[in-house]
Design a protein around this nucleic acid. Sequence first.
DNA 1: TATATATAGTTAGCTTGGCTAAGTAATATG
DNA 2: CATATTACTTAGCCAAGCTAACTATATATA
Lengths: 151, 151
Amino acid sequence: MPTRRARPPGADAGLVADRLHSAAIHLLRRLRREDDASRLSAPRLSVLSVVVAAGAPTLGALATAEQVRPPTMTRLVAALEDLGLVAREPDATDGRQVRVRATAKGRAVLARGRARRVDVLADRLRALDPAELGALDETLAVIERVVRTLP
Amino acid sequence: MPTRRARPPGADAGLVADRLHSAAIHLLRRLRREDDASRLSAPRLSVLSVVVAAGAPTLGALATAEQVRPPTMTRLVAALEDLGLVAREPDATDGRQVRVRATAKGRAVLARGRARRVDVLADRLRALDPAELGALDETLAVIERVVRTLP
DNA sequence: TATATATAGTTAGCTTGGCTAAGTAATATG
DNA sequence: CATATTACTTAGCCAAGCTAACTATATATA
């Protein structure tokens, strides 16, 4: 990170960007190990989550949502299928498309797996000053908005 | 993500954790492509950054700082060495240890590479309301603290 | 001091998740 | 009907994570 110095009146966007980037890297790195219990990696968990939320999205829609290329999504879906968490279905009207639907097991595993992965983090957040948690909650809306506008 | 509902008096730590996790995933995913110009992936950039900041850390210290296992760090350092960005040096007093030092090229590339990667993000942050940026700046301190206390 | 143990890194080999390029099958379009 | 275009898959590459097992050095102990 750049040298930390007294902060000018308006916070320096470059510095904030750098810290945000770095924090994201380290957050995920530490959370990664929590996958072990559910055997669900972050990308798989994320896909499963979108599948459940969206109902029966096409593979292409999933790839777009997850910001990966179709071959990557083919592989992620195949892995989830092998685990019995989702099923492929042909689209009713367009024979090229593949719809992905969560199985009952998939929905169950999602609920438990995601909770487990994020629980460690949630525990730490519970230890925060309520005002800090509130501020984080509000700032997250800003972060989410910024992330959405990224290229 | 869990269903979004009216927020109770104190923000729900579980929900906030989930959003923070998800935001981190998507932030990194979108920033990843910016690596292309500098040819420096996020992990490599991060290691180089620690090396520059720390002076001449041992490989083990780097692994600890970056929360990866020694073999992973051996490989990251080897890659940076191949690129001429860092050099290995034997420790003066302990023959088992390897010290990693940035080359002049490494320091130069770090400055440009990191800036480029994070520039897209910084641009978006500059578009924020100054108050929002200030809030983000302060909340980042909280996030950084939380991340440090993670297992 | 000689031997045993512990520590720091490396090597080998596996897995996952990203990518591009090229192929197949289905749909749209001229 | 012929040709594009589209949706997905296959093949094959690379990076980055891991564990297990090895080497070399340092340290502790009998």
